[in-house]
Design a protein around this nucleic acid. Structure first.
Lengths: 332, 332
DNA sequence: CCTATAAATTGGAACGTTCCAAAAAATAAT
DNA sequence: ATTATTTTTTGGAACGTTCCAATTTATAGG
């Protein structure tokens, strides 16, 4: 007996009547191999039932087809929607995704990435946990890793960043409310430790300032970015400002919580108080009332990520703002 | 210049004053290395900033630390809840998860697994897509792969299967309704192409039969396992049987849709019609009314999966039923 | 038909680890 | 102190691929 039973490039080469180098060229989709040889090799691969060994390839070539998705919190519906899109698109460009969840903890995030270093992943797609230091990311980049931030910006980090146009989003939604005649408008929910909060808040407040008159009033209440957070924030808001007319929510999830509380208080969302979300979760069109919100195209974000992955212009770190869209339903 | 700059076991060995074999033994947590050597090696690893190369290790040793999670549909909240738990527990036993989503398509599932074979993953944790052939899974097992089915059973597949006790669950919930005096009880939603449907239906119907009297009535309506599916099923049910008294839902998601439709029709869930879910999603306690449901402990499932992963008693395929719990809230 | 150039093919070395069988060191038994 | 036994340590081969430099084959130009 020669080899135990694994079929290698050598076996394929023998069967195809070429050298193992030629087989390797075919496997790596090189363009410097003749059509004839390619056909022979492909046939031999089929016949032998050969299976490519990525470990060997990765060891020798020092590049892998593995991308690490470091997500902040998979429990969050938007994150999970985004993860699905990422996983699919990454698969479409011939790679696979290792998924890890940082649980919004910067410490865990750094420990995870340290462990992932052993796998020679070709890139990190990170939705950074609050408190992520820019030096941490820069350090990875210096070591030659491709790092792509999504959804959240870390100031001072020399990485490509792909985020929705948060400012434009809340600007759009706030203006819609103002156009409809609402004046006492609150910005509800979200937490100041992450960048998107500031951006969404900014869109709201600039719209409010640009359209201010003697009746406009700004109110801002932070919260956890959970349904229950939204619920509690809504209670707080109503206690403080019972005459509030409309709400721009940090996210759909926050809006869900706020709506829930309103219903309990016999307040009709969309009738008594206007409400707008952000994210356009799958469920939002099924809510009652169907939630007016800002749509983020997660596939567009995923595609942008993949473009960075394949267009390997290494450390040209650029910031990509993905456009958002106002989806008018009947909650205001 | 000798080597470009990667630090290898040889460098560590040199620094520690031992052989590379000894370093390897330390790295693989062998017990046949003296405390003194181990200390020296660990110190050298620290000093040199050595990073273990899993590709090389996996190539040589023919086993990896990668587990593939092949999930049916990450969009589904329960699936995503389960995936989070799986990812965490898998990480806790020192492995990493490659995540792929089959989108409920058996074809895509098989294509994905074929591609994953190139990565020499140490196991497949699969929530099988409808239509998965037992031979397909058995074929993997024959090739020496560890295959663990979760949530869904495939009859005739020689793989370990970890599922919640579906029958007991709906038996519990149906009996609760019967105890409360409901008699005309429907089983709403779910699709007969997957095993859990039959199991949950069985729990319902045996409970109904065992407690039948002159007033009991069974009604069964299938649907997509989505919120909208639940909504449509509820409409259908009310059209057919306007005097229905209570509903056992295939899942919480179905219940959400049903509740939504009821509210639109000015029917008060929990008051006019009793309703019980299955899964106990995070949101279910926040619903109005808070949803009575069957709790599945996803961490328990994930732990059982990990037990199979580490207790590598290869092809001892056993079926593990994870207990469920009735959570009484106020929807019936 | 010969030469110059381009395109395609090739064998051997290398990637960084683990395995193996054998040697060395430590311990126990005589 | 010597031998038998166990525990540790070790260098070299192997895992299956890609890279490299060199060779062979094909194409173009005169």
């Amino acid at each position: 007996m020669k080899n135990q039973n694994t079929i290698t490039v050598v076996d394929v080469a023998k069967k195809a009547g070429v050298s193992k180098s030629t087989v390797s060229l075919v496997l790596t989709h090189s363009n410097k191999v003749s059509e004839k040889s390619k056909r022979k090799v492909l046939k031999a691969i089929e016949d032998t039932g050969y299976i490519y060994n990525r470990d060997a390839a990765s060891l020798r070539s020092r590049r892998s087809n593995l991308v690490a998705i470091v997500i902040n919190d998979l429990t969050n519906p938007y994150s999970s929607q985004l993860t699905v899109a990422l996983e699919q698109q990454i698969r479409n460009i011939g790679m696979f995704a290792i998924l890890v969840s940082s649980g919004e903890s910067a410490d865990q995030q750094s420990e995870l990435i340290q462990r992932l270093e052993e796998y020679k992943v070709s890139a990190y797609v990170i939705c950074p946990a609050p408190g992520t230091r820019p030096e941490f990311l820069n350090n990875l980049v210096d070591k030659g890793r491709l790092v792509i931030n999504i959804m959240r910006e870390i100031q001072g980090a020399n990485v490509s960043t792909i985020i929705p146009d948060n400012v434009a989003g809340t600007d759009l939604s706030t203006n819609l409310l103002l156009d409809k005649g609402y004046r006492k408008i609150a910005f509800l929910g979200g937490n100041k430790s992450i960048s998107d909060y500031h951006q969404r808040l900014k869109g709201y407040s600039t719209a409010m300032i640009n359209n201010s008159d003697d009746r406009t009033e700004q109110h801002v209440i932070q919260s956890d970015t959970t349904r229950d957070g939204g619920r509690k924030a809504m209670k707080l808001l109503l206690d403080r400002s019972p005459d509030i007319e409309a709400i721009v929510c940090f996210s759909d999830i926050i809006a869900y919580g706020a709506i829930e509380y309103m219903k309990e208080q016999q307040i009709k969302p969309g009738v008594d108080i206007g409400i707008i979300g952000f994210d356009d979760l799958k469920d939002s069109q099924l809510m009652s009332p169907p939630l007016t919100t800002i749509h983020i195209n997660e596939n567009q974000i995923a595609r942008a990520v993949c473009q960075e992955l394949v267009g390997a212009d290494s450390n040209a770190h650029n910031k990509i703002l993905v456009g958002v869209k106002l989806i008018e339903r009947s909650s205001c």
